[in-house]
Amino acid sequence: MKIAVLKEQADGERRVAATPETVKKFIALGATLAVEAGAGETASIADAAYADAGASVADRAAVLAGADIVLGVQGPDPESLAGVAPGAWIVASLNPFGERARVDGYAAAGYEALAMEFMPRITRAQSMDILSSQSNLSGYKAVLDAAAEYGRAFPMMMTAAGTVSAAKAFVMGVGVAGLQAIATARRLGAQVSATDVRSATKEQIQSLGAKPIFVENVAGIEGEGSGGYAGEMSPEYQKAQAELVTAHIAKQDIVITTALIPGRPAPRLISAAQVASMRPGSVIVDLAVEQGGNVEGAVAGEVVMVNGVKIVGHRNVPSRLAADTSALFSRNLFNFLSAFWDKETGKPVLDAEIGDAIRLTKDGKVVNARLLA
């Protein structure tokens, strides 16, 4: 079983799909590892470290030749996989809804494409969940990015020259990224509040020492989608939340938005009028900017100034902490493949529960129910 690890080709992608740690673990299972030269450089991993772990380090053609499994962070272009035989697995974050043409390319080439972001959110798959591992560090980095753009201190400081007031930070969307953003802003000394469409998150917000900001008296609107993700809000809830947020957001110094709905554009949480209500010098970080953005006026890949308010729209935030996010991503991949490793055949064999959820293509066809609906 030959496993190929590729150097990422997407613009700005600094992560890598395997580390020396996971290379050793795969070899212990009986696999052979081949790593493309330079694959780990932007994640602070030298080629020599892979070689010391037992992998062969070579050019792309040699790495792909005869590969049974190709590991990536972002899905590689099917045309860049020359030498990979039909039936090989492509295991990565494949963006199935946004890159449907690429998925069709995998099918045409006969590859079995496995989308790690489609991993079901069930107990036994928690250690395989790339969305959670990457979102956790995205939430942390969002607060650091906000602090870097904010022209004042976060904590309250009492000095002989007077008192510096604590920054007020508001987190919108309390999933994995939002919870980490709350915790990080609290550690930096900010006065933190948060909101979500899922009422069950209220206790989580309070457990981190933040103030929950929730719509009350809108019966039956929980915002709970399948698999623990947020669902779409009803018009009644949207109206009530907009009124609540408008009053609250005008008093905030930092706002971090994290709301995403799988397979759909990011919901609009902050309007231009709400941005205009904030004080000059305030900062908004939109973690959903690449999916259309939670904030009106956010621009993917840019920090823009609107009425004195900075709106931060960095692309690929996990890649901005490449060493740590690569370590977590690569462990997700190892945990996934090793959980299904069959010692007798020397390869992973998927079961229906997880296999059917993440398999996009097989035998020349697109087979995933979410793409065929």
Rank of each mutant, 00 (worst) to 15 (best):
F170T: 01
K24L: 06
G83I: 04
I270Q: 00
K362R: 15
A108D: 06
A194F: 02
E21Q: 15
S207W: 06
D145S: 15
A210H: 05
S133P: 15
P318R: 05
T32M: 14
N332M: 10
D324Q: 15
P96W: 02
G38K: 13
R320S: 06
D104T: 11
V309E: 00
A322Y: 03
G228Y: 05
A160T: 10
D342S: 09
R370I: 14
T42E: 08
G209R: 12
D68C: 02
A82C: 08
I90F: 01
A242S: 14
P155M: 10
M119F: 03
L321I: 14
I130K: 14
A34G: 12
A190T: 11
L144Q: 13
S127M: 10
G308K: 11
Q9T: 10
G364V: 08
G87I: 02
R60Q: 13
M156Y: 13
A298T: 07
K168F: 02
S330K: 10
I256G: 03
S330H: 08
V70C: 03
L360R: 14
S44F: 14
A92Y: 01
E216D: 03
S271R: 12
Q180E: 02
M128T: 09
A210K: 12
F334E: 10
S138L: 04
G263E: 01
P265H: 08
N294Q: 06
S93P: 06
V215D: 01
P348D: 05
W89D: 15
S282Y: 01
L371I: 06
L321A: 06
S193L: 04
V143A: 01
T201A: 04
G72P: 03
A369Q: 11
K310I: 01
I249W: 04
S93L: 11
S135D: 07
P280F: 04
T258S: 12
Y140N: 05
S44K: 12
T163P: 07
A194R: 14
V35P: 04
R315D: 02
T22C: 07
I45M: 04
S282W: 01
L372A: 07
A322D: 03
F329Y: 15
P235Q: 14
S93D: 08
P96R: 03
A142E: 02
A43N: 07
A146D: 03
A276D: 11
A323V: 13
W89S: 09
A48C: 09
A55G: 04
D196A: 10
A49Y: 04
A49Q: 07
G110Y: 01
G301V: 03
A43I: 02
M128Q: 12
I311T: 11
E236Q: 13
V304K: 13
Q74S: 15
I27Q: 12
I90D: 03
N136G: 11
G105I: 05
V306F: 06
A242Y: 11
